[in-house]
């Protein structure tokens, strides 16, 4: 239930969307791009979102693209997580998506919404971090393509009026050995205590985490420790955990020290599964 009113727009093209945004912004409507709408609707009810206009991007063909090209995958930002799971173009993303919310909700939650929303777990960002995906972003000045990671500092740094159209993933990266695990406080549905995603390329492990900090992250320092085969696994993991960004979440899902305990175990599981436990 959205207690306040807003106007709903459903542009058919990128330029229509950005132009609408600019016009509504000029009118003081503080518009929002609208993907699945699940967060906009539920947070409106709690007075955590307020807008006078939403711009639904689901009718924009580019946002709904799902192309498996020769070199790269193109994943439209307005694809629902369930659609991505079913098409399964990027198995690691499928695994991450599959653990978000619940199946029915994932019929609505979009990839772009999960990554750009306020709810800070943004778990589907993790596979895109480690696959070093690009983001295609549209805005008042046209369309740009950039490395997703470069633009993600705790959250995706979008300019006013910008929205994510697509993600582009290197096809080779999408087929690399990988690891995903999500641990919750209890049970099989719910926010993560810790979610870990990893991918191994050319003998090097890339790792990203959600639930540990109030933002998902991939950190060069953490990876350096994880990949430091000169040291025993236990030390590598401890050093990696020590290098996690701060603050460590300490909330109703779990305390900070428990989260670190779980994260360390998941790192160990990950190294085990990716065959990277030995010291050289």
């Amino acid at each position: 239930m959205v207690p306040f009113d807003f106007a709903y727009y459903r542009p058919q093209s990128i330029t229509e969307a950005t132009a609408l945004f600019a016009a509504l912004e000029r009118d003081g409507k503080r518009p929002l791009y609208y993907g699945g709408g699940t967060e906009i609707i539920t947070l409106s009810r709690l007075n955590l979102v307020r807008t006078a206009a939403v711009i639904d991007i689901k009718a924009i063909p580019e946002c709904r693209a799902l192309d498996v090209g020769h070199d790269s995958l193109v994943l439209g930002a307005a694809l629902s997580l369930a659609e991505l799971e079913e098409a399964n173009p990027f198995p690691l993303l499928t695994k991450a998506a599959r653990e978000v919310a619940d199946r029915t909700a994932r019929n609505q939650i979009t990839l772009g919404g999960n990554i750009c929303g306020q709810i800070f777990y943004r778990e589907t960002a993790l596979p895109l971090f480690v696959a070093e995906a690009d983001a295609i972003i549209a805005g008042p000045y046209g369309i740009r393509q950039c490395r997703f990671l470069d633009l993600f500092h705790q959250q995706l740094q979008l300019g006013r009026g910008e929205f994510v159209v697509q993600f582009k993933v290197d096809r080779a990266a999408a087929t690399l050995p990988h690891f995903h695990r999500k641990r919750r406080k209890q049970g099989e549905v719910g926010y993560p205590l810790v979610t870990i995603v990893a991918l191994k390329k050319d003998g090097t492990v890339r790792v990203a985490l959600s639930g540990v900090c109030p933002f998902p992250f991939r950190s060069a320092e953490v990876e350096a420790h994880v990949n430091d085969r000169s040291r025993p696994v236990g030390e590598r993991i401890q050093a990696a955990v020590d290098a996690f960004p701060r603050p460590i979440l300490h909330d109703i899902e779990g305390s900070a020290d428990y989260r670190l305990f779980v994260a360390a175990q998941l790192l160990e599981d990950m190294l085990g599964e990716l065959g990277d436990r030995e010291t050289v």
Partner: peptide, 27 residues
């Protein structure tokens, strides 16, 4: 719950189950 958590509001849209508390009618 009106929050997408309980599923009591589930209906089918084009045969797909959705939680109608978090979809706009206009959609």
């Amino acid at each position: 719950c009106l929050n997408g958590d309980c599923g009591a509001c589930t209906v089918l849209v084009d045969g797909t189950p959705i939680k109608s508390c978090m979809m706009l009618a206009i959609e």
